[in-house]
Design a protein around this nucleic acid. Structure first.
Lengths: 220, 220
DNA sequence: TCGATAAATACATACTATTGGTATGTTTAG
DNA sequence: CTAAACATACCAATAGTATGTATTTATCGA
């Protein structure tokens, strides 16, 4: 093929193909050759020119997909005249959650924890990062500082809620269940969060309902 | 080597070696050859005679390791003259939990969610099985039936508690943290469980402290 | 009960296709 | 002309298979 004038298009093609395959078949279930085969005409040399390993492709693919979500959330929380408690509720409101779910729905990962074990590990790791250095714990601490939240164990509460929200409330790596069961989970999570001082807001149920709709519309 | 009169010894040797390697290096990080190399003199032919795939070895190794724990728990819960609430507390008492932790400590899995992603997936899957068809939900339902537990969402509560206990309270796949942080997590979990009607008992803190000791004694 | 033989089991050996990755071209844009 | 953007040809390691061989165990007639 010689040389392309716009190599970033090639990179984008690679990452698009990679993301789709990694989601559908998992990390180990996807070979570099699988990816190459989707880049009509291109060869492995091109891929390894732009990325130095399969691992790097994997990370780059997901980072790229997540970037707009992360940015959106950052800007949402940047608003100054909101209490911590208000920001917390906002984090679990439809406008914050649904875009992320839409992304997941598009990615359409295999509903098999073993096949998706790499993704699961990412989500697991992410839950801790999210609560520790990420956005949840800071928001809670902000709430404690401004008096809008009363929580005795902010770090622990953040971790627990984050983990439950990511790996349980939306069971990405499990066979599809019913809307009622998802709503029951949301209700349950809200109760548990309230017990440690975190009010996730009344919108949580609404958010969950919308999540289910998005999910289903995507043909799960 | 010809033929062994007691092939089950060979199987045991294979599973022992496999378990150790899978824990230390993860599933993908362990090759069949790695396992074979630990079975002095034996070859791949032997391994593939007794097991039809790497996957099967992996499952067999962990099933074998878990078997005594599962049996122990089964017999503990079999006692008739206990209420559901009493059984629930017992599930989180040191005598029930510590043996399992000792097993995990011996297995000594890599504290890296990606390297251990397969194990993580197993634990994740296990949390749902445990709550659904396993022992936790039945105990809660027993408690509801005999009036010793008041829980509006038994299934959801079981899932949430199970997930938190398995993947958060004991963060197998995370770098070691302090005893205080583990205790704080236990306290937090107990509070959250109480909010949905599950009293995990006062022993939870004690259990957690013992877990940490076992963990540390194993040189984590 | 006994030995001979057949059959099945417990391995070893040798091989294969696929994999992630590399070394080294070749072509084209800047 | 040079460096980037690819292609081509290779490599070692991998999970798994096909097949060969030795040893145990089941079978059976006497």
């Amino acid at each position: 093929m010689g040389r392309n004038k716009y190599p970033e298009e090639t990179v984008a093609k690679i990452l698009d193909a990679a993301l789709e395959l990694f989601c559908a078949q998992g990390y180990e279930g996807t070979s570099i050759q699988d990816i190459v085969d989707r880049l009509d005409g291109m060869t492995k040399g091109a891929v390894y020119h732009h990325f130095k390993s399969k691992e790097e492709i994997f990370n780059a693919a997901f980072d790229r997909a997540m970037a707009p979500i992360v940015e959106r959330r950052r800007s949402t929380l940047g608003i100054g005249n909101m209490t911590g408690a208000q920001k917390l509720k906002r984090l679990y409101a439809p406008e914050s959650v649904v875009p992320q779910i839409e992304l997941w729905a598009r990615m359409h990962p295999a509903a098999d924890p073993v096949k998706s074990s790499r993704l699961l590990a990412m989500q697991y790791q992410g839950s801790f990062d999210e609560s520790a250095d990420g956005y949840l714990l800071p928001v809670i601490e902000e709430g404690i500082a401004d008096g809008s939240i009363a929580c005795e164990c902010p770090r622990e509460a953040a971790e627990a809620v984050s983990l439950l929200a990511n790996l349980w409330l939306l069971p990405l790596f499990r066979p599809l269940e019913t809307k009622d069961r998802m709503l029951a989970r949301a209700q349950c999570l809200a109760q548990m969060a309230a017990a440690v001082g975190l009010d996730l807001g009344n919108e949580v149920l609404q958010t969950t309902a919308q999540i289910w709709d998005v999910w289903n519309r995507a043909g799960w």
